[in-house]
Every structure is written in structure tokens, then in C-alpha cells.
């Protein structure tokens, strides 16, 4: 049962990342692209966790934690740059 669910969830997350990629390429404005990349890293966290379940190894969580932290900080930094033209005031 879990195998089946794992495959469905993997397929859904991959489709989600493809949609994000579409928006990141097409996106008419800069905030659109940032939003798409932001969503993409959120989805990739889930993808890594699912991979961890697949190979039955719980250490993959640390990679997920690192992606979560770096992704958040970089989103905020790019937004800051768009707002002020400067990251550290």
C-alpha cells in the first residue's frame, strides 16, 4: 500500500515541479519567477523526503532541512534586492 502511495506522491510532486518550471521560464515579471523558484524548492524538499522513504534511510532529512533554510534565506535576499536595490542596508 505504501509503495503505491509513494509512486503516486512522487508523480504528483514531479508534475508540480514541472509546472513551477513552466512558470519560472514564462513568468512575465521578476516576482513571478522568484515565486516559482520558491515553490520549486518547497516541492524538492518533499521529493527528497519521499526518496528517503523509498530507500528506507532517514538521514535524507538533513538535506531537506538545509534546502529549507537556504531557500528561505535566498528568497528573502532576492526580495530585499528588488525592494531596495541593496541587500544589507
Amino acid at each position: 500500500m505504501i509503495d503505491m502511495a509513494l509512486w503516486i506522491a512522487l508523480a504528483l510532486f514531479c508534475a508540480a515541479i514541472l509546472l513551477n518550471f513552466y512558470r519560472a521560464v514564462v513568468g512575465p515579471s521578476l516576482p513571478d519567477r522568484i515565486l516559482a523558484v520558491d515553490t520549486m524548492y518547497m516541492n524538492s524538499i518533499a521529493l527528497i523526503v519521499l526518496f528517503g522513504i523509498w530507500v528506507n534511510n532517514k538521514d535524507y532529512f538533513e538535506a531537506a532541512l538545509l534546502i529549507a533554510m537556504l531557500g528561505f534565506v535566498s528568497t528573502i535576499a532576492i526580495c530585499k534586492y528588488l525592494l531596495r536595490g541593496d541587500i544589507i542596508e
Binding site: 505504501i2 503505491m4 509513494l6 503516486i8 504528483l12 510532486f13 508540480a16 509546472l19 515553490t39 518533499a46
Partner: peptide, 18 residues
């Protein structure tokens, strides 16, 4: 299984909205 599928479905709907 429910949690995994629900998570995937929610993320997919979010990206669809995007």
C-alpha cells in the same frame, strides 16, 4: 499512504494555481 497522497495532491493543486 493517505498523508503522502494528500500531500502530493495539495502540492500539485498549489502549482496548478501558480
Amino acid at each position: 499512504a493517505f498523508m503522502l497522497i494528500a500531500g502530493g495532491a495539495f502540492a500539485f493543486i498549489g502549482s496548478l494555481g501558480l
